[in-house]
Structures are given as structure tokens and as C-alpha cells.
Design a protein around this nucleic acid. Sequence first.
DNA 1: GTCTTAATAG
DNA 2: CTATTAAGAC
Lengths: 267, 267
Amino acid sequence: MSDTLTIVTWNINSIRARIDLFGMMTKKLRPDVVLLQETRVTDGSFPLKTMHRRGFKHTALNGRGGHHGVAILSKVPLDDVRIDIIGGIDQSRHVSAVVDWGGPARLHSLYVPSGGDEPDVETNEKFRQKLEFVDGMLEWGQSAVGERAIVAGDFNIAPYPSDVWSHRQLLDVISHTPAETDRLENVRASQGWVDVVRRDRPEPQEVYTWWSYRNKTWPGSNRGRRLDHIWASPSLADSVREIDVLREARGWEKASDHVPVVARIER
Amino acid sequence: MSDTLTIVTWNINSIRARIDLFGMMTKKLRPDVVLLQETRVTDGSFPLKTMHRRGFKHTALNGRGGHHGVAILSKVPLDDVRIDIIGGIDQSRHVSAVVDWGGPARLHSLYVPSGGDEPDVETNEKFRQKLEFVDGMLEWGQSAVGERAIVAGDFNIAPYPSDVWSHRQLLDVISHTPAETDRLENVRASQGWVDVVRRDRPEPQEVYTWWSYRNKTWPGSNRGRRLDHIWASPSLADSVREIDVLREARGWEKASDHVPVVARIER
DNA sequence: GTCTTAATAG
DNA sequence: CTATTAAGAC
């Protein structure tokens, strides 16, 4: 173990269907801790043996059935595993655990609801739930930000103009509507979370972590969005360095539509 | 083209899922004509381009949707393609075509219904249909046997004691019940078809062409059955030589539960 | 487009 | 156990 702790967050879109891609990712990035979203597997069927074989001996799981599901795989010990219900939505969208890295630091794997197709809370229950989830983060994050903490995962929101391939064309598309981006930015700013990716690659740099499966938008037209995020609490933010987006993973055989995002934490 | 025409019959259990195994088979056996069953694909989605690339430029298809389906792939011209409805059961279970091999010879690819689980015509509609299909072969085969002809395929019946791993234990198991074996043997004998596999490997030699996916019966316990057959009309039988069962195919990665059966026809 | 589950078939 | 289809989710 060196003097940096390498953390990866990745919406892997089924850990079972992409267990080999998980291996390719670890070979490439050598992470100490991996925060996964959309594992799509109940805890009992999670491929723990494979993970152990690959050195991830410490795990925190929160999966249930074919949808959603989050997990933390770690080479360093995980303490005080916790599952939080955010915004009253009980759907395996959060798990966290504490690592000892220059003192305790809590790592949260977060999976915000996607929100369906129509950005209308009246007609689209899923969109309403998504907003409720982000509203729920207002209270939830208030206590989380008080620790040395990282919140990382698929937020399903691209908050800034350079987080999408076309700000104008996506203003009415779920993930980039003001109803979402305003709420998310309010959570972040009011609590003091540092969006470390944007800190190191400030606007108007384009940063994307997701490219749709539908339409062959990748890599040609590059119609991506930055849906995956790493937030650091103020007390930890200065130790977070070397942010990276593993863009090439979108081109792998049988790729996830999301790519891994990496950060390294100094001790 | 040499002086023998190599014919293979194979229940491939999805041509799309096993297109690579089809290639392995052809590399191994170098067939001129392949009679397939359980192709599980509509004609429009049949991988014709791949077949053409591999030299099978002449095809006769009868598939419709996710189940059943038969086909003939050939390196030599196919004439007078015909689809017969046998026993009134219209389920893509037959296709035939004529090759010119020392005169015209009709090759039939046949897929007899499996028959479900309970050997009871009262409670099991599928079993009733299976018996109706074999009864239908009585009339159908009468005209077929008048030509120089091969009828090959998955008959889903193991007619003789040495066609199953335990005659006694399978007497009440569909594929080896007297209701089936008596009917099939009656069709064969009354019309004069030559079961060329049994002619060359007479009882009590064990010959199996199928090993179940359920339970790991292969290769250890060798609980197989001879469900796939090659029958020759009297006028052609003497030209049929070098029967072989490609047993090793059951051990291939992602194998079909049936293995290819080969015959060579002299000109 | 790419997964999941479930039902259905073999 | 190994396929298929269909629905639903993302």
C-alpha cells in the first residue's frame, strides 16, 4: 500500500454480466476501494469469491434483485458499514463504510434514481421520486458532510453546462433539467461538498462519464453526460488528487454505459 | 468434391447461440450437407451470410420464432425444396430437398416433437401430439420411402434397448416408452427404411447421441440416449457408409445436448 | 442497446 | 442446464 488510497466509482450496470470488465478496470487503475452502483444482484448472489481472489477482501453490499444495488469492494478494512434510506426511498441506493486513512474517512456509494423519461412530477412518478431523493440529500448530507467523507456514485444528474454535450438541447431532458441541477447544486453548495472533478477540470472543460447505449453516440458524436461524481467533504477535499475518468472503458467489449471515475487520497 | 457425399444431422439447439460450434463441427467433419434441427430462428434471422462464407451456398429453411425450426445447409445444389406437415402438426418440423448424387436423392431434416414430461395422452397434450406425429409418419413416409431418400434428424425416440443407458429405468420415460418405440419401429419396418447407424453398429452396442443438460450426466455416468437417427430408403441404403457419431461435441464449450451424426454416401 | 426477471420449452 | 420471448428498467 502506497501513500495514496485509490478510489474508483463506477456504475457497472450488472456486476455479474461485467465481472471480467471489473477485472480489466482493476488491472488498469489498481484501486484500493471500488464504489459500485447498479450491481443488479441480491447480496447472496454477489460474486464475492471472485472479489476475494482479486484482493478485495472487505465488502459492503446493498443489493436486492434485478435493479439498483450498490456495493463497496476494498483491499483495506471497512468499518461501520451503514445503509441509509434517503428521501424515504428504500431501493438499495446507498451503502457506506469507514476506512482508516490518516484517520477515519467514510466512503459513500450513492445511486440516485434515474427518473424516467418525462420531466413532469404530475405524470411521472419516477421523476417525482428522483426529486424527492435529491431533496432527501439535503437533510442526509448535512450529517454526512460533518465527517471526513467522500460521496461518490451515479447521481444521474449532470449539473453544469459543460457536463452535457449540449446544454440547450438537454434543458428539458431528465438529468439536466433545472429542477434537478438546481436541487443538486443547492445540496452541494449549502453543505460545502467539493466536486473534486470540477475542481480539477473547471468549466468550460467538457467532462463526461456516460454515453447512451441507444444511438451509436460513442465515440463519434461524443454525446455524453457527466452523471457520475465524486464529492469530498471540506475536511478531506485537500487530500484528494489525481482525478481521472477512464473514458476508454466505454469502448470495451460489452461495456457499461458509464465509465469509472478515479480519485486518489493522500494519507 | 470427392466420391462420397458427407451428410451430418444435428440438433444444434439454436443456430444463433452455436454458430461457432457449427464451424467447429464443419472443420472436424467437412460435411457437404448439414441437416439441422431446433434452429430456433425465423428464416429472416437465419445467419445465411456466415453460412455462405463457410461454403454452404445452398439452403432450405423452415423456422418460425423461438422454438423448433429445421434447416438444410449444403455445398452442393439443392432442388425442389419441400416443407411437409406431418400428423397435422404445423410447427416447422420438416424440410427436405433433392441433391443430385448418382441420380436424385431427397434429404429430409426431421424434428419429432419432444413430448413433454408425463407419458400420458390424457393429461399431456404434448405427448399426444408426439404420438400423432409418429402416426402421421406412417402415411408420410410411405411416399417418401419410394424415392432415393435419407430421413435424418432428431426423432426424440430411442427405439432399442441399447439406445438408452438403462432400458428398464427408461421404459416409462418419454423417448423410450413402448407407445413411442413400437410406433417408430412400425413406421421404419413397415416401410423398409434402413436405420444405418444400427445396421453398422448392431445391438447390443451402446450408441448415444444425446446427454441431458440437467444433472451432470456427461461424460462420467454416460446416461445417454440415441435420439438422433439416419434412415435410408432401400434404394439408397447400400450406398451409405462410414457412419459416425461425433461424441466429443458434447464436451465442447457451450455444447448442444445433442451431438452430430455423420454418414457418407457413395456416388 | 443492454441488462434483469419471468414464463415456456427442451 | 440451456435456450427462447416478453416485459420493464435504465
